[in-house]
Each structure stands twice: as structure tokens, then as C-alpha cells.
Design a protein around this nucleic acid. Structure first.
Length: 201
DNA sequence: ATAAAGATCATT
DNA sequence: ATGATCTTTATG
């Protein structure tokens, strides 16, 4: 019921923020259809030191510019021409960091999500994986730069559920050289909605 | 103006 | 393993 404070996103340690986002609740209200779920998988990206980040070495382009603004906004982009990826911008202005949300456990608006995904009930694939989650939640390029303190996309505190968080290697960043094996992916231990791809440490 | 490379997914 | 599919970015 309680949205995260702006200060949550403005902190400087994006890895810590990614870890803390596991267990929080992500909601969208798109075309009056409210959907939401518990975040169970995230990845941190650091725009100064991290070769896997689109804003590596402070690369400020039309696509990455939102990461150079203050934390608490959305960074949405298209991957492989097909899938939308939903990220949360963190840190102060001019410090370009972001957290990719990779999977949620559905809570609300499951019927809407199933229609958007065109699949039937009880499919883990509904909101597992970054592309799938975006499609289910109705998040598209038009939501680039959405303020998370508004009423379109937002994140709420968790509900005191008990769980453990585990760190893993990030997925699909083999091009990142020395940074490809950083343990900057965080998952809710044992949760079945965590994406099934690349389970190596 | 052109080319190349993706923070993926579903299917074979 | 492979193909789908198209934006963004870099380069000439």
C-alpha cells in the first residue's frame, strides 16, 4: 500500500538497491488495467565502471539519457528488436545507474496479464524473464521516463514476507569482458518465477 | 546512408 | 541450437 520514497532510488549503491528491490511490489495501471507482482529477480548496472551498462563510461545518448537524470524514473528499451526491458534509474543526476527487473511473481490483474501474453493460467512464463514481464504488465517504449512516484508505474513496500536473497552472475552480458561475471543479479531464493535462463553462479 | 549488434524468447 | 525482428548507435 505504501510507495517507496524517492530517497530509496537516490542512494548511490546500485548493487545494494538491486538487492533490496527483491521482495518489493511492482504495479502498473495502463489503460485502467491494474497489474502487479512481487519482484523476484533484478540486476544492477553501473554507468561509470560497468562494461555491461548501456551508459558505460558515462555514454549519454538519446537512449541512455534518462539514466543521467535523478533516480526514481523508468528506463525502457527494446532488445533484439522484439522485447521491452524495464529498468529503474537510481542515484543522483549525472550518475547513470539502473536496475533491470527480470521477473515478478504475479499478484494482481492476472487476467489482464494472461490476455497480453496470450497464454493460459498457471504458466510460469507469464511474468518470468524481462521481456515477458514487460509484455504482461503492458510496459512499452511510451513508458520511457515515467516517474515512479506517479500512478502509472510504481513500486510498493513488501509485506513482511520472509525470504532469502541470493547473488548470481548477470544474464546475457558475455560481451562485457571483465565485468561479465560480476555477482550483480539478485534472486528470491527458491521462488519458481525466477527466470530459468543461465543459472550458473 | 549503411551496417552491426544486441541486458530475449519460443521452438526445434 | 536457431530464427525472429527492429531500434539504437557508430561510421562514412
Amino acid at each position: 500500500m505504501r510507495k517507496l520514497n524517492k530517497n530509496f532510488y537516490l542512494r548511490e549503491d546500485v548493487v545494494q538497491i538491486a538487492k533490496e528491490l527483491v521482495g518489493k511490489k511492482l504495479y502498473s495501471n495502463i489503460n485502467g488495467q491494474v497489474c502487479g507482482g512481487i519482484i523476484v529477480e533484478t540486476e544492477a548496472y553501473n554507468g561509470r565502471t560497468d562494461k555491461a551498462c548501456h551508459a558505460y563510461l558515462n555514454k549519454n545518448t538519446k537512449r541512455t539519457q534518462i539514466m543521467f537524470g535523478e533516480g526514481g524514473m523508468t528506463y525502457v528499451y527494446i532488445c533484439y528488436g522484439i522485447h521491452k526491458m524495464f529498468n529503474i534509474v537510481t542515484n543522483m543526476a549525472n550518475l547513470a545507474d539502473a536496475v533491470l527487473i527480470r521477473a515478478i511473481e504475479p499478484l494482481a490483474g492476472v487476467n489482464y496479464m494472461e490476455i497480453r501474453r496470450n497464454i493460459k493460467s498457471n504458466k510460469v512464463a507469464l511474468t518470468s524473464g524481462p521481456g515477458n514481464l514487460c509484455k504482461a504488465m503492458g510496459i512499452d517504449l511510451m513508458h520511457y521516463g515515467t516517474d515512479l512516484s506517479g500512478n502509472v508505474i510504481w513500486i510498493e513496500e513488501n509485506e513482511g514476507k520472509i525470504f532469502e536473497v541470493e547473488a548470481r552472475k548477470r544474464v546475457g552480458v558475455d560481451y562485457a569482458g571483465r565485468d561479465k561475471d560480476l555477482p550483480w543479479r539478485f534472486i528470491m531464493k527458491g521462488n519458481k518465477w525466477v527466470s530459468k535462463r543461465n543459472f550458473g553462479l
